[in-house]
Design a protein around this nucleic acid. Structure first.
Lengths: 240, 240
DNA sequence: CGGCCGGTTGATAACGCTCAAATGCGGTGG
DNA sequence: CCACCGCATTTGAGCGTTATCAACCGGCCG
């Protein structure tokens, strides 16, 4: 289990490109405060001026916005070793929120620390930029999914993405991984009512495609799930 | 009317931050080929390795992906002086398409040219980065809109965004601007059937909120349109 | 003048949301 | 150890809305 901020950075950035030993050493030297979050607690909130970036050491984070009527739209889930807000360096004010869905442990990297590495290591700079672009690509996939797919397709696509990312991060050796979310959470990500999340989930379960219960996601039939979700992992730009 | 690649860059980046005279001179020195596109023609396509970035000199561009069943999801519209793909520098392979909706004129900036400026001008580098992040923020707004809003709200929100961006670019001195799109296009952006685009459009027209016909968008009642669309322009991160 | 594309209008059916109520489960306190 | 409480999940019924299908209109261009 990863416990260190630098180690998270090395593992995560390594997913998108290769790091030299020098790059790795530099990243491992990054210092950051470790903080434990309780379920529902935010690290970065709308309107705030961030002074640090966040990396996920353990747990599950969400990025979301709240509409005036308290409706929530989740933009992304972040698993262990994900780096939700590297781009905080270049944005002045947050226009969305980042928080924990379940008790989580995060690392807070001061922005000057990030600047130091990026000035020192052009290759790392490039990878951080690429990581940001991958997040934009994921956003496009979510837009496509929520606008165009039917409920079962939406859910299948989301499960495929999460499982693919979990596997890449080494969190799902065996087609199953932690995903401690409520039906409400899934609904707020996919743009559907929680009741309907339940029914759709039941369908996927009965069809033996995938299952989600007790905070654990299991993919039962990859090929068919991929087909139902029209899932093409290329937008994740993962190496290998 | 803008005719030059460098001038577009100066005008567009200037929307998000301030440029020194040196920055402006450097940007004006950027050389790029000008190309005319016919309606429906693509400049960058899925799977391609881009060698240049695109800026819009005149016309209207769309960024979109095509599902296997030929369903299209439009991710963004780009107006004159927009810079759709500055980030092309750091992405290896396109995972979506960029094309013209109507006859358009674009500038193609070779990536080495962009690198040259970014190495020379740290402030420009920062603005380009910020521009990329603004595009991500817009994507989040589109996700929110298409997932959570009702048809009239979706359309109102889209119109608010386009008008706000057009005004910022100086294209809508007077609550009206060019928007030469079909109902089909709007539908593929908002995730609704073109027939229903028509009905919703009629409602907005009858309610005297906004109108779109003959390729021209007119906002008739800002306050109410903003309210219906739950529009908050802060995600556009515009200066001024 | 004719054809084609985009816009308009109408009718129908299916789908997903809402409301409502019951069941199951985990944690807390007696 | 058991009882209770709150939260999440499950199931049911009804309704509103939007997609689909289809036909017609109107303008632009060849």
């Amino acid at each position: 289990m990863t416990r260190d901020v630098g180690e998270v950075l090395v593992r995560h950035l390594g997913l998108f490109g290769s790091l030299s030993d020098g790059d790795k050493d530099a990243l491992m030297s990054v210092k950051g405060e470790v903080r434990d979050l309780e379920a529902g607690e935010d690290v970065l909130t709308d309107g705030e001026r961030p002074t640090y970036s966040v990396v996920v050491i353990a747990g599950l984070l969400q990025r979301y916005t709240l509409a005036p009527d308290r409706k929530r739209q989740i933009h992304s889930f972040y698993l262990s070793t994900d780096t939700p807000s590297l781009e905080a360096i270049h944005i002045g004010v947050m226009d969305n929120n980042l928080g924990a869905l379940t008790p989580s442990r995060v690392g807070l990297v001061p922005l000057p620390e990030l600047h130091r590495i990026m000035d020192l290591r052009p290759n790392v700079l490039g990878l951080i930029w690429r990581e940001t672009l991958v997040q934009a690509a994921i956003l496009r996939a979510w837009l496509m999914r929520n606008s165009r797919l039917l409920p079962d397709g939406k859910m299948a696509h989301l499960f495929c993405e999460i499982m693919t990312r979990a596997k890449a991060a080494g969190l799902a050796p065996d087609d199953t991984c932690d995903l401690p979310v409520t039906h409400e959470d899934i609904g707020d990500a996919l743009g559907m009512a929680s009741v309907h999340v339940n029914r759709t989930l039941t369908m996927l379960r009965d069809a033996a495609l995938a299952d989600l219960h007790a905070g654990r996601l299991t993919v039962l039939d990859w090929p068919r799930l991929v087909e139902v979700g029209e899932f093409d992992p290329s937008y994740l730009h993962l190496l290998r």
